[in-house]
């Protein structure tokens, strides 16, 4: 009896570990695979490179994860990045503004767009997918109108620090990502409004009946999503050193992929930032490793799509209720 009990316990422990760290195990397997397949992969400079490549994704993913926790979606993330790109570049180059001021204004605009999304979703009760789709189209149009489709370049030198600078050996974008993720974890785990995200996403009616101002929670979450997308946009602008209308195109789907890989439920109520980081890193490792192995971009797409499908399938199978 005791042995069966203990072996059952061991099985449970393994299952619990797999459930808790599953996504990190996938990441570990990928890292080991690429380390064996390519001698250039597991090298300090390359790993930092991976981290820098995913940092914009990681920054935007925090706000996006909040939206998913609420049971919504924010398709305007890519367009917000584009708009922030163009507005900041335009203010610095055409109006000669100080970079700090330009960044401040651009981030305020990104937050305001997020707030507008949240306001419409909460008050008009339109589905978030439609509201943010419309917003995506609108602000992409606005970005084109500002720059007439042409790239804007010639920024002050100091601006390049954000995307290209280093603190010791660590690229600044990676530091920003770590800071944003830490902030995201703090919000979700320690603040009362972070708790509200889970409550509203898990059961909006019960949340409302527990005295949560559901509208305010929605305003906050979409505002944060817009804001973090804006931060990612600034980093992208600084890295590429030119404001371009295609800078954020399709970015929302990369962010969605990272969040879902990281186990954030699209139905709302479930998800952790630490696992989103793993999702972000998996995408980064895949991109980097496949390039090192000289695999064509189209094959990469097939592989990434397959990984997404498998990851979510495993998650669904785990959570499926026994019938």
């Amino acid at each position: 009896m005791e042995t069966t009990a203990s072996s059952k316990n061991t099985g449970n422990v393994v299952a619990a570990i797999a459930k808790r760290f599953g996504i990190y195990i996938v990441l570990l397997v990928l890292v080991i695979f690429f380390s064996i397949a390519s001698e250039n992969f597991f090298v300090g400079s390359n790993l930092l490179n991976v981290a820098r490549q995913v940092s914009m994704l990681g920054i935007a993913a925090v706000g996006f994860a909040f939206v998913l926790l609420l049971g919504g979606i924010d398709l305007s993330v890519g367009s917000v990045i584009t708009l922030v790109n163009i507005v900041t570049a335009w203010l610095m180059v055409n109006s000669g503004w100080n970079p700090v001021l330009a960044v401040f204004v651009a981030l305020s605009i990104s937050a305001a767009i997020g707030f507008a999304n949240g306001w419409i979703i909460a008050n008009i009760q339109m589905p978030s997918i439609i509201v943010t789709l419309a917003m995506m189209i609108i602000i992409e149009g606005v970005a084109y109108l500002i720059c007439k489709g042409l790239p804007i370049y010639g920024f002050p030198k100091s601006f390049a620090v954000i995307g290209q600078g280093y603190l010791g050996p660590i690229p600044i974008p990676v530091i920003i990502m770590i800071a944003v993720m830490a902030l995201g974890m703090f919000i979700l785990n320690k603040t009362y409004f972070g708790r509200y995200f889970y409550a509203v996403g898990g059961n909006e009616e019960a949340a409302k009946l527990s005295g949560i101002n559901v509208k305010n929670v929605k305003y906050l979450v979409y505002t944060l999503s817009g804001f973090f997308a804006g931060v990612a946009g600034i980093v992208i602008l600084s890295r590429t050193n030119s404001g371009q209308v295609l800078s954020g195109k399709g970015f929302e789907f990369d962010v969605l992929t990272a969040c879902v890989l990281g186990g954030v439920s699209v139905a709302g109520g479930h998800g952790k930032i630490s696992n989103v980081l793993a999702g972000v890193l998996i995408l980064g490792v895949l991109s980097n490793g496949l390039v090192l192995l000289d695999i064509s971009q189209f094959v990469q797409m097939v592989i990434k799509g397959t990984v997404l499908m498998l990851a979510v399938a495993v998650d669904c199978l785990q959570h499926r209720k026994p019938s």
């Binding site: 320690k190 603040t191 009362y192 409004f193 708790r195 509200y196 889970y198 409550a199 898990g202 059961n203 019960a206 949340a207 527990s210 005295g211 949560i212 109520g269 479930h270």
Partner: peptide, 25 residues
């Protein structure tokens, strides 16, 4: 009930703001 949240979190749900300082529970 907020089914996916633990018992402690359910009990405190309606008083979270009262027991928070600087937004921190």
């Amino acid at each position: 009930a907020l089914l996916e949240i633990d018992i402690r979190g359910n009990i405190s749900m309606a008083i979270l703001e009262r027991i928070s300082r600087f937004f921190t529970v």
